[in-house]
Design a protein around this nucleic acid. Structure first.
Lengths: 196, 196
DNA sequence: GTCTATAAAAGGATAGAC
DNA sequence: GTCTATCCTTTTATAGAC
């Protein structure tokens, strides 16, 4: 996708972010040079620095954007309902939301070690917030006698790991639709929580 | 752990592998230079090439060793029994085996993209073998009417993702012992499989 | 088996012209 | 806003002395 030298575009910024997201996911942050990103967008490397102060900011920006959007999107969808209804909504939301954001999900987990300590803490706090949402659902279900869970925190970690794992194998072209997968995983989630 | 220049050791090879394993896990393959590995072992970089033809072989060797040992260790432990007994054995084995090999487990998943295509295929085949062991247990349980599983392959992927997830949060110093964690995860595994 | 020295390429980031 | 040119560092890997 190299562009003609000197050509212009009002959307260079987003295109740089798109390229960085895809390249970081495919090859890893450390393996992707600023030159590779520039070349993907059709720029020379110097031009990138009009859009980011350095490579680290590029990574951190992508991860923060993803995690903030994730937490916000869930809180938008959450609303009320019984613990059982909220748990089902969470399981289906998690699978759907993550399925269409493969690259960002991959980066947000794999590239944590390439963040500076300060940036790492910010991303981890966002992750804790998201996990906290599921823990709260499980704890409320236990309180109301709807769930049988030995430890809401551990069960939450187990459920999130299970649901996120869909991304490692699911492909749109496979024998199951995403709706099929949602149904099967909701069933396993329900059982893991000891829901009736 | 820098050693005196010119000193000798009969175990340089293993020490290089240990250092590479730890550094690759902590910082990522692409971010670790041969110099860093050499320095960790107390060598100059040139000496490493007495033990490995190149950096890629170092990574591939670590991953193949880990995956082959994993498959072999499970087949050693597997033996017979009811599907329910075999499933419990698998869940507990997986958690225990992976818990004491954090670095290797991390690398075997995170660094797949840094393998050459030929090496990648070999590692993936070993992973498929391991997953196949769990799929077989679930399928046998379904046949005997012990389990209620919509799709043994998917349930296997879900269970493995859930069990492997323990590594992301469990610490020996936490409030739960590994035995506690094993018990809780076995319970969730049992439920996910619809076992009685 | 390890060292020193080196080759040849690639890396992040900046300066200044346009 | 982009390019060209450059700085300075680091990289993998090899050669040859010891």
């Amino acid at each position: 996708m190299a562009r003609t030298s000197g050509s212009h575009s009002e959307i260079t910024g987003p295109r740089i972010l798109d390229a960085a997201l895809r390249l970081f996911a495919q090859q890893g942050y450390a393996a992707v040079s600023m030159r590779k990103i520039a070349s993907e967008v059709g720029l020379q490397v110097g031009a990138l620095y009009n859009y980011t102060p350095d490579k680290q900011s590029l990574l951190f920006g992508l991860m923060r954007e993803h995690m903030e959007n994730l937490v916000a999107a869930w809180r938008e969808e959450a609303q009320g309902g019984t613990p059982n209804a909220r748990l089902e909504k969470f399981a289906r939301f998690h699978i759907r939301y993550h399925n269409v954001r493969r690259d960002a999900v991959f980066i947000a987990y794999m590239e944590l070690r390439n963040l500076t300590p300060e940036n790492f803490e910010i991303i981890e706090e966002l992750r804790r917030q998201y996990e906290g949402e599921l823990i709260a659902i499980l704890a409320e279900g236990v309180r109301q006698g709807d769930f049988q869970v030995a430890d809401p925190k551990i069960t939450a970690m187990a459920i999130i790991a299970m649901l996120t794992g869909v991304n490692t194998w699911f492909r749109e072209t496979g024998r199951l639709s995403l709706k099929d997968v949602e149904d099967i995983y909701w069933d396993m989630t329900r059982r893991a929580a000891g829901a009736s």
